Amino acid sequence: MNHIHWPAGFIPGFADNFASNEVIVAGLSAADIWPLLSHPHRWPGYYPNSANVTIAEGHGPELANGVRFYFETFGFPVQAQCNEFTAPGNGQPGRIAWHGWAGEGDTRLDVHHAWLIEDLSEGRVRILTQETQQGKPAEALATARPNPMINGHQDWLEGLVQAARSAVGA
Rank of each mutant, 00 (worst) to 15 (best):
V125F: 09
H59A: 14
I96K: 05
L116S: 08
Y47W: 15
E122G: 03
Y70L: 03
Q130T: 11
A30Q: 05
V111K: 05
L128N: 11
F76I: 01
I117R: 09
R68W: 00
G66F: 09
A64D: 12
S50K: 06
H41T: 09
E57P: 01
Q92G: 07
G94C: 10
G89C: 07
S29H: 03
P48G: 09
L37P: 11
A114W: 04
E118F: 08
Q81S: 04
Q81P: 01
P61V: 07
C82N: 10
P40Q: 03
L63P: 03
G94W: 13
G60V: 03
G58K: 02
L128H: 12
Q81V: 10
S29T: 15
C82I: 04
R124P: 06
H99Q: 14
R95C: 04
E72C: 04
V111W: 04
N49H: 14
P88H: 12
A102Q: 13
S38F: 01
I117V: 15
A80L: 08
A51H: 11
Y70H: 13
N83A: 07
I55D: 10
I117C: 12
G27Q: 02
I96M: 14
G105H: 06
G75A: 05
A30P: 00
D110C: 05
R108Y: 12
A30R: 08
W98M: 09
R126K: 13
T132I: 08
G105F: 08
P61M: 08
T86E: 15
F71N: 11
T86A: 15
D32H: 04
F85P: 07
N90H: 15
D32K: 00
P61R: 02
T132N: 07
L37G: 05
G45D: 07
F69A: 03
Q92L: 15
A87M: 15
A31R: 10
E84K: 14
L128V: 11
S50H: 10
E131A: 11
T54K: 09
G91H: 09
E72Y: 02
P48K: 08
T107Y: 01
I24P: 00
V67M: 06
L63D: 02
W115T: 05
P35A: 01
V125C: 06
T132C: 09
V67I: 03
S50Y: 09
S38R: 14
A26K: 12
I117Q: 06
L63V: 00
Y46W: 11
L28E: 00
E104F: 13
A97V: 01
G60L: 06
P44T: 03
G89M: 11
P35N: 02
E118R: 07
H113T: 08
E122K: 12
A56P: 00
S121F: 10
G94H: 12
N52M: 06
P61Q: 04
L128R: 14
W43R: 06
H39Y: 06
R42L: 10
T129S: 14
V53T: 13
Q92E: 15
L28G: 01
P88E: 13
Y47K: 01
L28H: 01
S50E: 12
G75Q: 04
V23Y: 05
I96F: 12
E104P: 00
L120F: 05
E72W: 01
H99M: 13
E118N: 08
A51D: 15
L109C: 13
H113M: 03
